[in-house]
Design a protein around this nucleic acid. Structure first.
Lengths: 216, 216
DNA sequence: TATTAAACGGGACAATTGTCCTACCCTGAA
DNA sequence: TTCAGGGTAGGACAATTGTCCCGTTTAATA
């Protein structure tokens, strides 16, 4: 759910350090709520997150948002646009204060053409994203929300982060009302009782979920 | 919906032609219903489709399938597994007779490390897939199925292909019952009347959709 | 402290979608 | 022709999810 990519971060740190003082790759800061990329705009930079968490989401015409992932340390954004020369698919918005390396598109292209290790890192990152997206989409579509919600709580507890409730709902593609209702039902069913659900969770996961429950 | 990639096809044709008679890249045939990749298995080859159509889907434990895309001429499969050394994420199943180039994983890796144009083609393909998946997922989740169904009909007519009804339902992530019901409702609403729906479709799209309606 | 606005939780009802089941229509074999 | 089996359409009901709305809590400010 919250993706990070230490290898990518390491790469860009090394690169800027060795790059004549990093004159080409600037660092930019974004306060909570600011957008690194704005859906539909063109971008002149690819960003690699140094610190902080962003949400990556599409805002539909009917006012609803769908969050694809939360991008943290070392994650890249704007790469689709850099590769395909298209307008931004998603909004990338800081949900904590964020600092990011701003890689100009020209440099990004240059790296793609000249740096095999960069290429490889990017390819791997994209493969993982496709994989995750597929798994999640299928799961969310084919199982009751109850399950997806539990899974989300577990992930959140595991990674020890707290995502605002509205964002959790947007990640699941449901309304806050449904989110609250499902939470309540889960509580009523007492998830500590393994009989209540036919989803297999480890002891650890259950504990984490319960801890997260307290806060919601 | 039905993806194709002429550039990729061209690449692999050139490559096998120039490769000492193509001894490393064999061609394999699959009859309708046969699987190029089997979810959960490991694969020793990456396939590039020369002819025919496949469906790419995840089969969940509860017996439901979710189709991500239909892959046609020039599309690659098994690349995620080739990049990440993971087990197959999806099933890739022929829905028409299929012939495909079978690229051994070792060669695939070699191409990744040594052939920049191959690298670029792959990167572009993956970028497009991510883009499509995101758009579709969000749309399907955040709008009524009615809309997604219309869109699907339009695409199908545009590309002049016919997908079995069950596969269309699986692509939308709904049951056949829902599919039929929605079809009927759309007919009742008379989509030729632009007032009936608040989705904007071109004259051409409407015609195509109607033509497709006849067949269902 | 009092006041107001904004955020939150949840009740009631509507709309959507899934499940189950029956009827119908094919097709091939007796 | 008749019958069984497989596939398809759709009715009836249940479950899920969304929409609308109101009462409560929280937080900020006079």
């Amino acid at each position: 759910m919250l993706r990070t990519n230490p290898a990518f971060l390491h790469f860009i740190e090394q690169f800027t350090a060795g790059n004549g003082g990093g004159e080409k790759v600037a660092t930019r800061s974004f306060h909570t709520g600011a957008k690194l990329l704005h859906q539909g705009d063109t971008t002149s930079h690819v960003y690699i997150i140094r610190e902080g968490i962003t949400k990556c989401y599409i805002a539909e015409d009917n006012g609803k948002d769908y969050i694809f992932e939360f991008l943290g340390k070392g994650e890249i954004t704007g790469e689709l646009e850099g590769i395909g020369k298209e307008k931004c698919l998603c909004n990338i918005e800081a949900i904590t204060p964020v600092t990011a390396y701003a890689v100009p598109l020209a440099l990004f292209s240059w790296l793609l053409s000249n740096d095999l290790s960069f290429n490889k890192l990017l390819l791997e990152e994209m493969a993982i994203r496709i994989r995750n997206t597929c798994i999640r989409t299928s799961y969310q579509r084919l199982y009751p929300i109850e399950y997806a919600l539990l899974r989300l709580l577990s992930l959140e507890a595991e990674q020890d982060i707290v995502i605002p409730k509205k964002d959790m709902a947007d990640y699941l593609g449901i309304t806050i009302r449904s989110f609250n209702r499902t939470l309540k039902e889960l509580r009523a069913k007492n998830i500590l009782d393994p009989q209540g659900l036919n989803i297999d969770l480890s002891k650890k996961q259950l504990e984490e979920i319960l801890r997260r429950f307290e806060e919601l």
